[in-house]
Amino acid sequence: MEVRTIKVFTTVDNINLHTQVVDMSMTYGQQFGPTYLDGADVTKIKPHNSHEGKTFYVLPNDDTLRVEAFEYYHTTDPSFLGRYMSALNHTKKWKYPQVNGLTSIKWADNNCYLATALLTLQQIELKFNPPALQDAYYRARAGEAANFCALILAYCNKTVGELGDVRETMSYLFQHANLDSCKRVLNVVCKTCGQQQTTLKGVEAVMYMGTLSYEQFKKGVQIPCTCGKQATKYLVQQESPFVMMSAPPAQYELKHGTFTCASEYTGNYQCGHYKHITSKETLYCIDGALLTKSSEYKGPITDVFYKENSYTTTIK
C-alpha cells in the first residue's frame, strides 16, 4: 500500500517557510505537534488534498525554529505562539472599519479597549522592536488589523473576551517599542525636605499616572512627601515624541487643539466601556464603527496623549 502524501510549508514567522512532505494517514499533531492554519487549530486533523502548498504555523520545537521565533517575536515564552494563534482565530472574524481616516474595530468580545489602543497607536510616533509587531502594525494602518490585535493580546497575556485596560495595554506595548531616546527629568520640591531631581528613561519617561493635564504637570502637581507634608512635583525636561497622561476616570474637559487623542471610560472596574476622542479640525468621538463630532467635550476621561518633541522648564 502506497503512502499518500502532500507537500506543505511549516513556519513560526510566515517569513521562513520549511518544506514538509506530510503523510495523509496521520494527523498534523502526530507529525508536527500543535499546528495552526489561519489561526485555526488543526492539530487533530489529517492532511487533505486542499492543504497542498498551504502554510501551517507550528510551535518552535527545534533550534532553527526557536531562533526564527525569537528573532521575529522577541520572546522565548513557549506558550506565546499558541496564544497568538488562538487569538487570531477570533480577531480574523472582527470587522476593521476605516473611521475618520483611522483603522478602528467594530465592537465584539469586549474589544473596546483594543480599538482605543489601536486608534491611539496610529496617532503617536512609535516604532516597535519585534519585527512581528512592526509588520502587523503597518498592515493594521492599511486596514488589516487582525494579526496586530492578536499579537497585542498575546504580548499582554490576554484572551479574547476578557476586559482590558488601555493604560495597561499601552504599557505592555511600550515595553516592546523603541523608547531608548526618551528621557524625563522631574523635580520634587518640599518646604521641609528641599528639592530632589529624578531622571527617568524609556517607558517611565512617557507615562504618568495622577493627572490628565500635561500643562498642569509642567506647572506642578501636589504629591505627598515622605515627611508627610505636601510637596510639588513638576516637569523639568521632556525628550520624547509623545507623552501619555493618565488618571482614574473623572469628568474632564478636553479643549480642541490642546491634545492629540484621549480615552474615555464609562462604567466601573468590573464592567465598563471605552471610547476614543481625537482632536482634528474639530473633536471626534470614535466608538467602534461609530463616529460623532463636537466642538467641545466633557466626560469621564482616563488617558490623554500629547505630541511632544523637546521641553525644558522655565521655572527657576
Rank of each mutant, 00 (worst) to 15 (best):
160 V>C: 08
84 Y>E: 05
144 E>C: 10
294 S>I: 15
195 Q>Y: 10
285 C>K: 10
122 Q>R: 00
238 Q>D: 06
216 Q>D: 12
304 V>A: 05
191 K>D: 15
227 C>K: 02
275 K>S: 13
246 S>P: 01
140 A>E: 10
282 T>L: 09
197 Q>M: 09
80 F>V: 04
308 E>M: 05
178 N>K: 11
135 D>M: 10
87 A>V: 06
275 K>H: 06
251 Q>I: 15
31 Q>M: 13
77 D>N: 08
132 A>S: 04
215 E>F: 04
15 I>Q: 09
315 I>T: 15
178 N>A: 11
202 G>M: 02
22 V>R: 03
57 Y>N: 09
302 T>P: 04
225 C>R: 03
287 D>E: 04
125 E>R: 04
82 G>V: 13
52 E>G: 11
221 V>S: 03
97 P>S: 15
158 K>A: 09
232 T>M: 11
38 D>H: 10
13 D>C: 02
243 V>H: 00
199 T>I: 11
93 K>D: 12
61 N>G: 08
185 V>G: 00
58 V>K: 06
240 S>Q: 05
177 A>T: 10
290 L>W: 11
279 S>E: 00
265 Y>G: 06
212 L>T: 11
83 R>W: 01
294 S>D: 09
106 K>A: 15
305 F>S: 02
100 N>D: 09
55 T>Y: 07
84 Y>F: 14
103 T>E: 03
226 T>V: 14
284 Y>V: 14
159 T>R: 11
151 L>A: 06
22 V>K: 04
232 T>D: 01
160 V>M: 00
257 G>E: 12
136 A>K: 02
112 C>M: 04
198 T>R: 11
254 L>D: 02
147 N>Y: 09
132 A>H: 03
91 T>Y: 04
259 F>V: 02
88 L>W: 11
18 H>P: 11
254 L>P: 05
109 D>H: 05
242 F>L: 01
22 V>Y: 05
172 Y>M: 15
70 F>Y: 03
210 G>F: 02
301 I>K: 00
137 Y>R: 04
54 K>R: 12
313 T>R: 14
152 I>G: 04
240 S>T: 04
144 E>N: 12
127 K>S: 11
20 Q>V: 12
314 T>A: 13
230 Q>S: 12
268 N>H: 15
88 L>E: 03
285 C>T: 09
163 L>N: 05
64 T>F: 09
257 G>L: 04
10 T>I: 12
244 M>G: 03
9 F>P: 04
61 N>R: 12
272 G>L: 00
119 L>R: 01
148 F>D: 01
131 P>W: 08
160 V>R: 02
122 Q>E: 05
2 E>G: 14
142 A>Y: 10
181 S>R: 13
273 H>K: 04
261 C>P: 09
154 A>S: 07
298 K>W: 13
195 Q>H: 13
112 C>N: 00
229 K>W: 05
270 Q>N: 13
104 S>Q: 12
33 G>R: 07
186 L>F: 12
54 K>P: 05
30 Q>A: 13
247 A>P: 04
56 F>N: 04
207 M>P: 08
129 N>K: 14
116 T>P: 08
312 T>S: 11
77 D>W: 03
297 Y>V: 10
278 T>I: 08
120 T>A: 14
249 P>I: 09
119 L>V: 11
115 A>L: 01
75 T>P: 05
308 E>S: 02
62 D>A: 07
288 G>M: 09
154 A>M: 09
197 Q>T: 13
308 E>H: 07
13 D>F: 05
47 P>D: 08
26 M>R: 12
234 Y>H: 03
17 L>M: 10
58 V>E: 05
292 T>H: 08
254 L>W: 00
306 Y>R: 03
9 F>Q: 10
226 T>S: 15
121 L>A: 08
307 K>W: 05
97 P>F: 11
59 L>P: 01
186 L>A: 07
181 S>W: 11
151 L>G: 03
289 A>W: 07
118 L>E: 07
312 T>E: 07
32 F>P: 00
301 I>Q: 00
307 K>F: 08
147 N>H: 13
163 L>I: 04
192 T>L: 09
197 Q>L: 08
312 T>G: 08
51 H>P: 02
183 K>N: 01
87 A>D: 07
3 V>P: 14
8 V>A: 12
99 V>N: 09
94 W>V: 10
88 L>F: 06
220 G>Q: 05
154 A>R: 03
238 Q>A: 03
9 F>R: 10
58 V>F: 02
102 L>W: 00
114 L>F: 08
28 Y>F: 07
133 L>F: 00
303 D>C: 06
291 L>M: 14
104 S>C: 14
267 G>Q: 15
172 Y>H: 12
139 R>K: 13
21 V>L: 13
154 A>N: 03
223 I>E: 10
113 Y>T: 03
27 T>R: 11
12 V>L: 02
256 H>N: 00
213 S>V: 01
182 C>M: 04
224 P>N: 14
38 D>W: 10
176 H>P: 01
261 C>L: 03
309 N>G: 12
216 Q>E: 13
13 D>R: 10
223 I>H: 13
214 Y>T: 00
283 L>Q: 00
272 G>V: 08
199 T>H: 10
65 L>W: 09
160 V>E: 07
111 N>F: 05
148 F>P: 04
233 K>S: 11
237 Q>C: 11
209 M>Y: 15
19 T>N: 14
58 V>Y: 02
203 V>W: 12
178 N>T: 06
160 V>F: 03
202 G>A: 06
265 Y>C: 00
28 Y>W: 08
229 K>E: 15
182 C>F: 08
206 V>S: 03
312 T>D: 04
73 Y>H: 02
67 V>H: 12
85 M>C: 07
143 G>P: 05
189 V>Q: 06
115 A>R: 05
41 D>S: 11
6 I>L: 12
288 G>Y: 00
76 T>R: 11
145 A>L: 01
212 L>S: 04
157 N>W: 05
185 V>A: 03
230 Q>T: 14
239 E>L: 07
62 D>W: 00
207 M>I: 06
218 K>A: 03
49 N>H: 09
248 P>A: 07
59 L>C: 13
14 N>K: 08
260 T>Q: 12
136 A>E: 12
236 V>Q: 07
120 T>W: 04
237 Q>H: 15
133 L>I: 06
231 A>N: 02
74 H>P: 01
138 Y>A: 14
110 N>F: 07
136 A>T: 06
161 G>H: 05
226 T>L: 09
107 W>H: 07
165 D>Y: 09
182 C>H: 08
261 C>G: 03
143 G>H: 05
107 W>C: 01
118 L>K: 03
99 V>K: 09
35 T>L: 08
8 V>Q: 05
56 F>D: 06
149 C>T: 08
287 D>R: 01
161 G>C: 07
280 K>D: 10
306 Y>H: 00
73 Y>I: 01
181 S>I: 05
86 S>Y: 07
59 L>K: 10
63 D>K: 08
22 V>H: 01
241 P>G: 02
47 P>M: 05
64 T>A: 10
98 Q>D: 04
150 A>N: 02
222 Q>R: 13
271 C>V: 11
224 P>H: 10
